[in-house]
């Protein structure tokens, strides 16, 4: 049994301009200890997908259908207080902007200690002792546990966020663009830390990013998401060396290469309007190979190799 299985998940946001179809029939699974990259451009529904797994969507979101099966239990059917026991302890989350995700009037150590106290009924002293240990394990000296968030740099704060996410030894960590708000050198440090985590804690990680190259030496598999749907799934090798979907191919071409003089490729067209997405294959208005059927019908995800799935009419015999 997979650690997590998402089945046909559909999430919309109700807005004054209509329904935003943010996640539209997504299915995938994650094995224990596996690192999965979830890649797609801005607005493709990555964060919405991540937040739905923990049922932390904003009030204007509606889950239309689907299941999120974690260890055999559908999280979407759980009551709030049952979910609370899973959040942080079984599944935890790292967010994009470390400047806004820590409580400004709370010491950084307390963010960790309070979670230990609530989930394990630990006494204060014990909780703080462990909090300091966890902080040290992500490279923050124990004495900085008494700092307030504003006394730390962005990189340090993101380490604190990672510490809060691993303190309870969860089986699944959802990291939503954990490096995007940081400068390049700090980004590398944080990625190293995540790799370290993968090796030490044997936790599964969903690494959400809009930058395909970030997943290259950390992920086992990559999901390519576009306009609320998954277009391609495969191992890092599949995606990097044998990309099948025209969108994936475009993404790869648009990664800048060291020493290359040629101009950077940009996928033509612009991201779709999610209140009124294109018919059929969502990518067809930007696809160089689009045909009649692409506009009419959405292609299913089909296997092209073991562990390599693509949703594109190019690979479906008719």
């Amino acid at each position: 049994m997979s650690l997590l299985r998402v089945n046909n998940l559909r999430v919309v946001f109700e807005t004054p301009y209509g329904q935003v179809k943010a996640v539209d029939g997504v299915s995938f699974e994650i094995e224990r200890g596996e690192v999965v990259g979830l890649v797609g451009e801005s607005g493709s529904g990555k964060s919405t997908l991540g937040l739905s797994i923990m049922k932390l969507l904003p009030p204007n979101a509606r889950i239309l259908s689907g299941q999120v099966i974690y260890n055999g239990v559908d999280l979407l059917r759980l009551k709030e207080d049952e979910l609370r026991k899973i959040r942080g302890k079984e599944i935890s989350m790292i967010f994009q902007d470390p400047m806004t995700t820590l409580n400004p009037t709370m010491r950084v150590g307390e963010h960790i200690a309070e979670a230990l106290m609530y989930h394990y009924n630990m006494d204060k002293e014990e909780a703080w002792r462990i909090a300091k240990e966890v902080l040290e394990s992500v490279g923050i000296p124990a004495e900085r546990a008494m700092d307030y968030p504003h006394q730390m740099s962005g990189g340090m704060r993101q380490r604190v966020m990672i510490a809060t996410a691993i303190a309870l030894k969860p089986k699944l960590i959802i990291a939503d663009e954990p490096t995007s708000a940081l400068d390049v050198i700090v980004q590398d440090h944080i990625l190293e830390l995540l790799k370290d985590l993968r090796d030490r804690n044997k936790a599964s990680i969903i690494l959400i990013t809009h930058d395909l190259s970030v997943t290259a030496d950390i992920a086992d598999r990559v999901l390519i998401m576009y306009a609320g749907r998954i277009l391609e799934v495969g191992t890092v090798e599949h995606i990097y060396y044998h990309p099948h979907h025209p969108y994936t191919q475009g993404l790869l071409k648009s990664i800048p290469k060291l020493g290359s003089k040629s101009e950077l490729y940009i996928i033509p067209g612009s991201p779709p309007d999610m209140t009124n997405p294109p018919s059929g294959c969502r990518f067809h208005p930007r696809c160089p190979y689009a045909r009649g059927i692409c506009m009419k019908e959405a292609p299913p995800l089909v296997k092209v190799e073991k562990g390599h799935l693509v949703a594109c009419w190019l690979y479906i015999e008719r």
């Binding site: 932390l56 709030e80 942080g88 935890s92 967010f95 806004t100 995700t101 989930h119 809060t164």
Partner: peptide, 22 residues
């Protein structure tokens, strides 16, 4: 509606504590 409130929910912090302390 601040991010640190969502982050606290994601850590499984009880609601009453979030309303008061956060």
């Amino acid at each position: 509606s601040e991010d640190y409130v969502i982050a606290a929910k994601a850590r499984g912090i009880p609601d009453f504590r979030i309303k008061i302390k956060y």
